[in-house]
Write a protein that binds this DNA or RNA. Structure first.
Lengths: 204, 204
DNA sequence: AGATTCGCTGGTCGATTGAAAAGCGAGACG
DNA sequence: CGTCTCGCTTTTCAATCGACCAGCGAATCT
């Protein structure tokens, strides 16, 4: 209401907004219950949409899952860029330290990434292979390069999974952590403490 | 056939053997697909049994899950005891280092533990609370005590989840790791390398 | 302004889910 | 040896699953 150009939503804009709402809901649903455990109806409910609408925008549950994976990895890439842009480092080690801290912060803000990766990584499936080819390989390649002070190159896979696990688990199982330790992983100072802790371990 | 006492299986023995087969299959199924994603029929198939038999031995899917959780945590306790019994250590730190290595070896042999914990720890549910009260609290308590050289006690929750994540992830997502890095986490020397790596990080 | 596109709704399909109930049949028991 | 127990199989149930389709109606186009 009011101006002609104000509040106007073209068909294409509306379409894209709806798709985003659904993808966001799908990301939560898949991360929370796993691919098989998440139902398209539950995802539709989270998105405030109709179940048939999911089939309309994305052809299948599988395709919707791929869209959700694209989204979380896009968020990861954007977050790392934003956190690191404009920073200058004297040594490669300093840059690596800040990269680790940036990753931990992202894991805290988006525990869905870790949940999705564990859910899919534990089984050999088409989705797992798609994930590796489209998202993990570029990341792992970047991890392989731009790295300093890893004495033995054969340790790189170990360092990769140690960083992913050590940096993400406490946030991925935040409800359990609260119940078990009384510590709330969502608290800002807890995130920073964890980031420092993990960075200090891998780059002493 | 043959002797009277040979090959004889009493009713009670048969019952217990069947229950164990089912629990073992349930552990695999739940770890692989998550609680909601795993179907009782699939579990029955793995156990070479009938779906109705699960309802007979365990009243519900939920109770079967609890039996599976009891089993994996029992295996953990037994494995740690066996790996550590008879060993003498000059310092507490040496003992802690061997405890870490023993845990990593168990995570490699039984990735189901980590998969189960992530699947349940990410949501607030009755199962999660049951898990915390019945299994995690004793373990966390033991982790809290018997530990040396942790400068700040407030870091203990962080160290706990760092150890769990760093020590387990590579084995929990072994199929993905093979595909991504070419490294097979199941290989004995890879397990030992990872154990040394994690222990070296947490106890430099 | 009339015709058309298309985002979206509501309903339906066969398949699969966890749980319950009835019946079988070999081992346990008097 | 006859009876009973009980581990197990089979069948059935309502609920839920992913996918499909016909139709509505407002935005878009001519």
């Amino acid at each position: 209401m009011g101006a002609t150009t104000e509040g106007t939503t073209s068909r294409a804009e509306q379409r894209e907004a709806t798709r985003e709402r659904i993808v966001e809901a799908a990301l939560e649903g898949f991360a929370e219950r796993g691919f098989r455990g998440a139902s398209t109806r539950d995802i539709a409910r989270r998105a405030g949409a109709n179940q048939g609408l999911l089939t309309y925008h994305f052809k299948s549950k599988d395709a919707l899952w791929r869209a959700a994976a694209d989204r979380i990895f896009g968020l990861l890439r954007k977050s790392l860029e934003e956190q690191l842009e404009g920073l200058e480092f004297a040594e490669v080690r300093d840059r690596n330290r800040e990269e680790i801290r940036a990753f931990v912060r992202f894991a805290a803000e988006h525990p869905e990434l870790f949940r999705l990766m564990v859910d899919e990584g534990k089984n050999s499936s088409e989705r797992m292979e798609w994930l590796v080819e489209n998202h993990l390989e570029p990341i792992y390649e970047g991890f392989w390069q731009g790295r300093d002070a890893v004495p033995d190159e054969s340790l790189l896979p170990h360092a990769y999974y140690v960083l992913a696990g050590a940096g993400s688990l406490i946030f991925a199982v935040a409800p359990e952590c609260r119940r078990l330790t009384g510590l709330d992983p969502a608290a800002r100072e807890v995130v920073e403490t964890h980031a420092d802790f993990v960075a200090g371990l891998l780059l002493p």
